[in-house]
Design a protein around this nucleic acid. Structure first.
Length: 113
DNA sequence: ATCTAAAGGCGTCAGTGGTT
DNA sequence: AACCACTGACGCCTTTAGAT
């Protein structure tokens, strides 16, 4: 049951801060159910159903995106680690090859003498 | 101990390409 | 057209390393 787990909506302000909103608009719309206002109230509750659904959708999307971002960062770290390992291996190989080349050069020089 | 710049991590938004 | 997963970019907060 999603709606029970979904926290209050979180919005980002223009300054990048986060803020929350309750169901203010829904509460404000509710009025005494006189015969005249009945239709209005019904429309409002229908509307609140829509906003509830929209809120649910939004929260679900945010949650999934949050998880996607976490996974993305995990994989990126893994990839960078991989690259660093590769660099270390190649540096070692390079070192070995340079030493080998030096040894062969020495050998060649001594033979030439 | 305090200050501060840099680095790291996080949540979110916006855009994109693929799928139904 | 609506939906989804993925990803780069952004702004914020926290941590870390070095200077004073």
């Amino acid at each position: 049951n999603l709606t029970q787990e979904v926290p209050t909506s979180i919005y980002r302000t223009s300054t990048g801060q986060y803020t929350t909103t309750g169901d203010m608009t829904i509460y404000q719309i509710r009025a005494p159910a006189t015969a005249l206002s009945q239709g209005v109230v019904m429309a409002a509750s229908l509307g609140s159903l829509h906003t509830e659904e929209a809120t649910c959708k939004r929260e679900l999307r945010l949650m999934k995106n949050r998880e996607a971002a976490q996974e993305r960062r995990r994989k990126k770290k893994e990839y960078v680690k991989c690259l660093e390992n590769r660099v270390a291996v190649l540096e070692n190989q390079n070192k070995t090859l340079i030493e080998e080349l030096k040894a062969l050069k020495d050998l060649y020089c001594h033979k030439a003498e």
